[in-house]
């Protein structure tokens, strides 16, 4: 396949529909990584993902400690799901995750959104989900550019080398 032509990625649309700390950060890291590589990036938050751009919730996201088979105890032992449901466990695990993230210089959600915006990335909220959760633009972080429909989102997918990623 010597003659296979490469088509570099030019634009990426990332859709985040969950409010788990790790799901939100996956979208944020990918969007920030894109703008840092000179790739046009748009972030679309929908359903529970709206927590990540809602001012009073965005910096209080949690990691889920139940139904998460990848969870480990410190030391590598499997984390029993039953334990994850005990009061305070989720907060404790989340605090530990945040501490590790801070160590790697991963910014809090609001700062991350601002960095993405500074790099030319655009942040949108889903209209249907915002209506459902009774949220307006005033409830959201200033980096949120607009509340848009799914049709508006697809209209942004014009141009060669565009990809959509759903997290």
């Amino acid at each position: 396949m010597e003659n296979e032509k490469k088509h570099p990625l030019k634009k990426i649309l990332l859709i985040c529909s969950k409010a788990n700390l790790e799901d939100v950060y996956a979208a944020l890291v990918m969007a920030n990584g894109a703008v840092m590589e000179g790739i046009e990036a748009k972030l679309f938050f929908t359903f529970f993902g709206l927590d990540a751009i809602t001012s009073k919730r965005m910096n209080k996201l949690h990691t889920s400690t139940v139904g998460n088979p990848g969870m480990r105890m410190p030391g590598g032992m499997p984390f029993p799901t039953m334990l994850g449901g005990l009061p305070g466990v989720e907060s404790g695990v989340t605090a530990m995750m945040k501490k590790e993230m801070e160590r790697l210089d991963m910014p809090p959600v609001d700062e991350f959104l601002e960095l993405i915006e500074a790099g030319g990335g655009e942040i949108y909220a889903c209209k249907l989900a915002a209506d459902m959760f009774k949220l307006t633009k005033e409830d959201m972080h200033p980096a949120v550019k607009d509340i848009i429909t799914v049709g508006d989102l697809y209209a942004m997918c014009d141009g060669e080398g565009t990809q959509i990623v759903f997290t």
């Binding site: 920030n32 703008v35 840092m36 210089d105 991963m106 910014p107 700062e111 601002e114 960095l115 500074a118 790099g119 030319g120």
Partner: peptide
């Protein structure tokens, strides 16, 4: 020290937007 966009933004030398 490692370089990150966050570190640059906080450097006091330049903010992220100007850096871009």
């Amino acid at each position: 020290e490692g370089l990150t966009i966050r570190g640059i933004n906080k450097s006091g030398v330049v903010d992220a937007k100007t850096f871009y």
